[in-house]
Amino acid sequence: MTTRHALIIGASRGIGFGLVERLLERKWQVTATSRRVDDSGLAELSGRFEGRLHQERVDIDLEDQVAALHQRLTGSAFDLILVNAGVTHDRWETLAEVSTETFQRLMLTNALSPMRFIERFQDRATSTGTLAVTSSGQGSITNNTRVTGWEVYRASKSALNQLMRSYAARHPQDPHTLLLLAPGWVRTELGGPEASLSVEQSTAGLADVIEAQAGRGGLQFLDHSGQTVPW
């Protein structure tokens, strides 16, 4: 089998880290990024999967760092480019209460920066590769029918979904597979200890979805079990 190559952005912990680990277990070559120069978790994975993990540093909110990474990866071709980015706020903070600074931070990191990254790095994907971003079931407008909190987080993920759909509309002949991935409620720093899924359960499912959708083209909003999430 031809070796598959992945670029995973935001891989220092949680969903991103778990997905890197799952792909390495499946014999992928992975380039993984974090915002820190020295990431001990990724370094440990590199030792376990000798020769198949390359580490890079980038903060996707800083355009100069994104441009520099794009330049460093000249000549690379990835079967998967996945941007995993997510910050949140106090669960019960409503739109009436949230500060402008917090609102701007969530919209920048959760929606604008991931899609700017996809725009810049589309030329680093193979011709039939996958461009993916970590969305959330919380971004579903259809399912937002009861009070569960995280109003601005929900809005930022809905904005991400809309921007990806706009990207797809502007590239109707693009053969790339486009995925909005909803990992489920996962026991991470963001999801909290009461969440129903472990990182391993969620990311094993996401890896299955990514591999199943490879080469199919089009845009889909899918959860960790491969089910379509309502827009």
Rank of each mutant, 00 (worst) to 15 (best):
S34D: 06
A77Q: 14
T31E: 09
R57C: 10
R52M: 11
S113P: 09
T74C: 04
A32E: 05
L53W: 01
T74G: 06
D61I: 10
V98N: 02
F117H: 07
L53K: 00
V66D: 03
E50Y: 04
M107V: 09
S113C: 03
A77Y: 01
G47Q: 03
P114Q: 02
Q29G: 04
D59N: 15
S113W: 05
E63G: 06
V66Q: 09
E44Y: 01
R91D: 01
G75M: 09
F78R: 07
A43H: 07
L82W: 07
V98Y: 01
D59P: 10
A43S: 13
E101M: 15
G47M: 00
I60H: 08
H70W: 13
L106I: 06
E44D: 09
A67Y: 05
L95Y: 03
R72N: 09
S99I: 02
D59S: 12
A77N: 03
R48T: 08
E50F: 04
L106A: 04
Q29D: 13
F103R: 07
E44C: 03
L80I: 04
D59A: 11
E63C: 01
I118D: 02
E44G: 01
V98T: 08
L112T: 09
D90H: 00
T88W: 04
S76N: 13
S113L: 02
F117D: 05
D59R: 08
W92P: 01
Q29P: 04
S99D: 13
N110M: 06
V98A: 15
R105T: 14
Q71Y: 12
E93I: 00
K27E: 15
R35E: 08
L62W: 10
E93W: 00
E56H: 14
F117K: 04
S40F: 13
M107S: 06
L45C: 03
L95R: 02
S76K: 12
E101Y: 11
A111K: 05
Q55C: 15
M115N: 09
D79R: 02
V98F: 02
F78E: 07
T33H: 10
E63P: 13
H54Y: 10
W28D: 05
L53V: 00
S99R: 02
E63A: 11
Q65S: 04
P114C: 04
A43E: 12
Q55G: 08
G47S: 05
E119P: 05
E63N: 08
T31C: 10
Q65T: 06
T33F: 09
T74L: 10
S34W: 06
A85R: 10
L53Q: 00
L95W: 04
S99T: 15
R48L: 08
A96W: 03
A77I: 02
D38E: 15
D90T: 01
G51I: 03
E93L: 10
D61R: 14
D79F: 00
L62E: 15
W28V: 07
S76I: 04
G47W: 00
S34Y: 08
I60E: 07
F117I: 06
R52N: 13
Q71S: 14
D64W: 07
A111E: 09
G47V: 00
R72Y: 02
E56N: 05
Q65V: 06
N84A: 05
L73R: 11
E56Y: 04
R116C: 11
A111F: 13
A111M: 12
I118E: 03
R105D: 14
T100H: 13
L42Y: 00
D39Q: 06
I81R: 12
R91Q: 14
H54K: 14
A68G: 12
R35A: 08
R91S: 01
